[in-house]
Simulated scan of single mutants.
Amino acid sequence: MDCQRAEAYVLDQLHQHLSPTLYYHGLHHTRDVVAQAESLAQAVGITDPEQLTLLRTAAFYHDAGFLTVYQGHEAAGCELARIVLPEFDYTPAQVDTICELIMATKVPQSPGDSPLAQVLCDADLDYLGRPDFWPISNSLRDELLARNLVADEASWQRLQLSFLTQHQYWTPAAVARRESEKQARVAEVQALVTGFE
């Protein structure tokens, strides 16, 4: 696997071709997910070099489907991975694993018992329990507003409350790092929703 070239390829594509109105799902989000995936993998004891490379590649490609579609971007990202990654010496089995990881991030997340998928899912939504929750969530609101997927602030906060209360972290490391702060955000969003009623 020539992961460096595979990563450089997708970073170049994201840099050049992502919509400027992907305020949340921009290149910054991909870079954040890669960093969080590496940190969580270390925390949960994943040390096998091939497994770590597959996780890292999946993190780089997990939102690459936004290059072509908005809804169903996970499947589109897998299509891109299946076309591109063999050129970088990924085997069919390795590409299958990467696609399984990407598809696990589709909301509602479904990582099953796969430690790699659990790590990627937790990395993808790490911000839910972080101090920078509000600016990041506001960027997602703006992205959805730009696509007429939410009508106004009240409907956005209701959607956000529903999402937060249904979300779960999958790895013990993410629970330990993020769950208590996420619960604080739930309370804050609940207060906002109550204020709209």
Rank of each mutant, 00 (worst) to 15 (best):
A174G: 01
Y9E: 08
E38F: 04
A35P: 01
G65H: 08
E188V: 15
A35W: 11
L85C: 05
Y70W: 13
Q42K: 10
P49F: 12
P115D: 14
H29T: 03
I46Y: 00
Q71M: 13
D152N: 14
A123R: 00
I136A: 11
D113A: 14
T68P: 00
E38Y: 07
L18F: 15
D12Y: 04
P111V: 11
A93H: 10
Y61H: 09
A191Y: 12
A8V: 07
R82C: 04
E143L: 01
I102W: 00
Y9L: 09
P108Q: 11
W156V: 02
A37C: 09
L120C: 05
V84D: 08
A174E: 00
H25P: 04
V107K: 12
V186W: 12
L149V: 05
L145W: 04
W170K: 01
V186E: 06
A191T: 15
T47Y: 05
P86M: 06
R141C: 06
P20Q: 04
P131W: 14
L40E: 06
E50A: 13
G45M: 07
P135D: 12
S137Y: 09
V150F: 01
L145A: 06
D142V: 03
L140T: 05
L52M: 09
Q94I: 04
K106T: 14
I83S: 13
T91C: 00
A8C: 07
Q109E: 10
L144T: 01
A93I: 04
V33W: 01
K106A: 14
A174L: 04
Q183E: 09
A58P: 01
E188L: 14
I102N: 01
P115G: 12
G195F: 07
M103V: 15
H62T: 09
A187D: 14
Y127C: 01
A81M: 08
H62Y: 10
Q16E: 12
F88Q: 03
H167E: 08
T57R: 01
L52S: 02
C99Q: 02
L22A: 09
C99L: 06
Q183S: 05
K182F: 02
A176K: 03
Q109R: 06
S137I: 13
A64N: 05
E179W: 10
T105K: 02
A75S: 13
V44D: 00
T194L: 09
L40P: 08
S137V: 14
M103C: 14
D96H: 07
A173G: 02
L18C: 11
A43H: 02
R56V: 03
V107S: 13
Y90P: 00
R158Y: 08
H29R: 04
V10H: 00
Q36V: 11
E143K: 02
A104G: 09
A8T: 15
D48S: 11
P49L: 07
D142A: 10
M103L: 15
F133I: 03
L67I: 11
Q168R: 14
A154G: 02
L161G: 05
H17N: 10
L27Q: 03
G195I: 08
V189T: 13
H73D: 07
V95E: 00
T194H: 08
D96W: 07
S139L: 11
D32S: 07
H28R: 09
P20N: 08
G45H: 05
L116W: 04
D2V: 12
S39P: 04
A117I: 08
L140K: 02
V34N: 00
Q13G: 05
I46K: 00
E188A: 15
L55T: 03
P49T: 08
